[in-house]
Amino acid sequence: MTILIGATPARTFDDARRWAAEGTALFTAAIDRLEPAGYDTASQLPGWTRKHLIGHVAANADALGNLISWAATGVEKRMYASPEQRNADIEAAATRPADELGAWYLRGAEELEEAMDGLSPEQWGHEVITAQLVTRKAGDVPWMRAREVFVHAVDLGVGITFADLPDDFLLALADEIRTKRGLSDNDLRDVAGPLPEVTAWLAGRPHALVDAPELGPWL
């Protein structure tokens, strides 16, 4: 298939909440497949072990929780103290014991879900600032979390692929990445294949497409 501009239905807030929950369940199931020694082996992201990746996803829950707190209280609370601190925290996570790292991930995922459940419709409309210094509505946080848990469940390298992700999520993800990469219909004219493979290609992940141009990393 080819992803056409404007062909993908706009995602809704309810979609994003559902995907965040489903993605969290998938990422949790991926961790459950690991033996303690498996945490130290390489993930599918260059230079990162699975510990790096799990630490990143755990820290992301805490960081997005900061944005939810900001929306709830009106008191500014940035995702991370600084890019340098974020990177240092991920490196530190790679040295933590597997059981400690897994417990951190589970705690953060549960606390984020509870915090999101507590926001009112008005609070979801409050503006927050992402780690990329982009002003967004708090209502975008569930989508941000869904991307993290679904895509990184694949990146863990435990046998989960883009084909295991929901089609409606893949359509929304492909549409967003295509837009962010500035790819037009003409750019995609010769790229055809199953939706999971096209989305993996757009996301800069391994794929089975033939003759698709190389794209740089994303997320």
Rank of each mutant, 00 (worst) to 15 (best):
Arg78Trp: 00
Gly38Met: 02
Thr28His: 12
Trp48Asn: 03
Thr41Cys: 09
Asp40Thr: 14
Gly55Pro: 13
Thr28Tyr: 02
Ile54Gly: 05
Gly74Glu: 10
Thr49His: 06
His52Val: 06
Asp62Arg: 15
Lys51Ala: 12
Ala29Asp: 14
Val57Ile: 15
His52Thr: 09
Tyr39Ile: 06
Gly55Leu: 11
Val57Ala: 09
Lys77Leu: 09
Ala59Lys: 13
Asp32Glu: 15
Leu64Trp: 02
Val75Arg: 14
Ala29Glu: 11
Trp48Gly: 07
Ile31Ser: 06
Ala58Asp: 08
Gly74His: 12
Ala63Leu: 01
Ser69His: 11
Thr41Tyr: 02
Thr41Glu: 04
Asn60Phe: 06
Asp32Ser: 14
Ala29Trp: 14
Gly47Trp: 11
Trp48Asp: 01
Glu76Cys: 01
Arg50Ala: 11
Thr73Met: 07
Thr28Ile: 08
Ile54Phe: 09
Ala29Lys: 05
Glu35Val: 15
Ala30Glu: 03
Ala37Val: 11
Leu53Glu: 03
Ile54Lys: 02
Ile31Phe: 10
Ala71Asn: 03
Ser43Gly: 03
Gly38Asn: 03
Thr73Asp: 03
Thr73Tyr: 08
Leu67Thr: 00
Leu64Cys: 06
Val57Glu: 04
Ala59Tyr: 10
Lys77Arg: 13
Arg33Ala: 14
Ala63Trp: 05
Asp40Ile: 09
Gly65Cys: 03
Ile68Cys: 06
Leu45Lys: 05
Ala63Glu: 02
Asp62Trp: 15
Ala37Asn: 10
Ala72Ser: 14
Ile68Ser: 07
Ala58Asn: 07
Ala63Ile: 00
Lys77Met: 05
Gln44Gly: 14
